[in-house]
Design a protein around this nucleic acid. Structure first.
Length: 500
RNA sequence: GGUCCUGUGGCCGAGUGGCUAGGCAGAGCUCUGCAAAAGCUCCUACAGCGGUUCGAAUCCGCUCGGGACCUCCA
């Protein structure tokens, strides 16, 4: 079995993945800030790392996947408004901060379920780990890399950079940062512009507040991930993931904090997914082009021509390598929708093929076809091992689609593939499509009664067709089509249906 | 301004120097009461200009275009 290779943002190259503890993998992924609804952009990292999580497990690793919930809110460091983001929004919506946080957490979980992502092993909240964060800040002060000013604590970047490589992850040069970082108001407290907050003193109107050795306040943004990653994964762990936009300053700062506290580099492999763009622009609050997931699933956004099924979105994302930007458009998503439908139909047909009946027992099989199938299947793990190339995995399955359809339709002679090959194909397709890529059918479940009604209609239509009563048969098909159920006449007089 | 990424056919997108990625759309044919689906076939591109090489979408340089980060951000 070839080795898994991962592109490490830290070293800027693909590296063979070797876990710290054989057989085990520790993975941390920066989770959402639940001060608002999740949007299309959020889908990318969580689906990407869901596949990483799934694939590592299929390789036999025992994976502890930690993904945090940022519910403490981050300080608007620009000094525009010295309030916690979450507290601010809560006032607008007349909600308690925790009420708001839970509302959006539930929505996030709901959306993740729609995407069929597996729940992480641990999903710690920032508010639930104030103690750990304070502990870490104390360590930093003790080590001399953090200082307190009027109830707030800052990380001393300049001092850290003197002995460590601050900027090794993001490629930033500290001297440049010193000159390019914008001069912002309300930052006189800091010794240096590049210093970042570990703890902020809370203004009186600030609702979210905790007691600390430095007075009442709330934690800075970067410390939560360091504290929780250390707590659940140890001082050093294997994989840290997140969006590319978090590279700097978030992940760079995480490295600095953890390196001082734990006396070692915290992360061995840094993975960063690229952004989803809309019309070539990154999706972001400041661009006013945010499509919320609820809007995406229901089609209620000015930019959307229609509603898109969560599986379409998942498939759309997996059709591109995670490190490339992915441009959203109705056309692209509709193409993905059709592609997935075609792929899934072939998969369903394959499941219905009776291997014993259609397959040859030994001789008489089509050697070339057998080899093609085996090659297409054999390549899959090579693709995944090559930095999770899900796009190539899907491409191979699309090459299998015509082969499957031809067997199902009887266009390929019975026995062209050995029964064992067919069985293998069935198993592999389930394994890769469902287990590794986490794809599902787009039809809704629980159509028991509908199915019976459909069987009745199909029976009636078959009888009508038998009498060449095409008026009745067309009426049934047309009326069904008008309510969104498509009836298809298969070869041999069978009929199948699907909900559009 | 600094750092970095990127430019592939009508659209979306893989691409490790040599052999058709794939999807969607479009065209034709087969099958078919009609339709849909399916099968087969076609459309075969790599921003521009140089360079390296027997050979480049793939390496190097320049030019032009797009984007990200430098500030909360997935």
């Amino acid at each position: 079995m070839a080795e898994l290779r991962i592109y490490n943002s830290l070293t800027r190259q693909k590296e063979v993945f070797t876990p710290l503890v054989p057989g085990h993998v520790g993975m941390y992924v920066c989770g959402p800030t639940v001060s608002g609804e999740s949007h299309l952009g959020h889908a990318r990292p969580y689906i990407t790392f869901d596949v990483v999580f799934r694939y590592l497990q299929t390789l036999g690793y025992k994976v502890r996947y930690v993904r945090n919930i940022t519910d403490a809110g981050h300080f608007e460091e620009e000094g525009r408004e010295a309030t916690d983001k979450i507290a601010e929004k809560a006032k607008l919506e007349q909600l308690e901060p925790m009420e708001l946080v839970h509302k959006y957490t539930r929505l996030f979980h709901w959306a993740m379920e729609q995407f069929n992502t597996l729940p992480p092993s641990v999903e710690p909240t920032a508010t639930g780990h104030i103690v750990e964060q304070i502990g870490m800040i104390e360590q930093l002060i003790e080590a001399g890399y953090a200082y307190e000013v009027q109830g707030s604590v800052y990380f001393d970047v300049k001092k850290y950079a003197a002995s460590h490589d601050y900027g090794k992850l993001s490629g930033r040069v500290i001297d440049e940062l010193l000159t390019t970082t914008r001069e912002l108001e309300g930052q006189e407290e800091k010794k240096d512009r590049t210093d970042f907050a570990l703890w902020k003193a809370a203004a009186p109107e600030h609702i979210m507040r905790w007691q600390s050795p430095w007075g009442v306040g709330y934690p800075g943004w970067h410390i939560e991930c360091s504290a929780m990653a250390t707590k659940y994964l140890g001082k050093q762990f294997d994989i840290h993931g997140g969006g590319m936009d978090l590279l700097f300053p978030h992940h760079e700062s995480e490295i600095a904090q953890s390196t001082i506290c734990n006396h070692q580099t915290p992360v061995r492999y840094w993975m960063h997914n690229n952004m989803i763009t809309i019309n070539g622009r990154k999706m972001g609050k400041s661009y006013n082009n945010v499509i919320r997931l609820t809007e995406l699933f229901s089609g209620t956004h000015p930019l959307l021509e229609k509603a898109y099924h969560p599986m379409t979105v998942r498939f759309f994302i997996l059709q591109t390598h995670y490190s490339s930007t992915l441009d959203f458009s109705n056309e692209a998503l509709q193409a993905a929708e059709k592609g997935l439908k075609r792929l899934w139909e072939a998969y369903q047909k394959l499941k219905k093929i009776d291997c014993a009946q259609k397959g040859a027992s030994g001789n008489g099989s089509d050697e070339a076809l057998t080899q093609t199938v085996n090659r297409l299947l054999g390549e899959l793990h090579l693709f995944m091992n090559d930095d999770f190339s899900t796009a190539k995995v899907l491409a191979n399955f699309f090459e299998l689609v015509p082969i499957i359809n031809a067997i199902y339709d009887g266009l390929t002679p019975t026995g062209a593939l050995a029964a064992s090959t067919l069985l293998h194909l069935q198993k592999e397709m389930t394994h890769w499509l469902e287990t590794v890529l986490g794809l599902q059918g787009m039809e809704e479940g629980g159509h028991n009664k509908l199915e019976q009604v459909m069987n009745l209609l199909i029976d009636i239509r078959k009888e009508a067709r038998g009498r060449k009563d095409f008026m009745t048969s067309d009426k049934i098909r047309d009326r069904l089509a008008s309510v969104g159920i498509q009836l298809k006449d298969e070869k041999g007089g069978e009929m199948t249906w699907r909900i559009d």
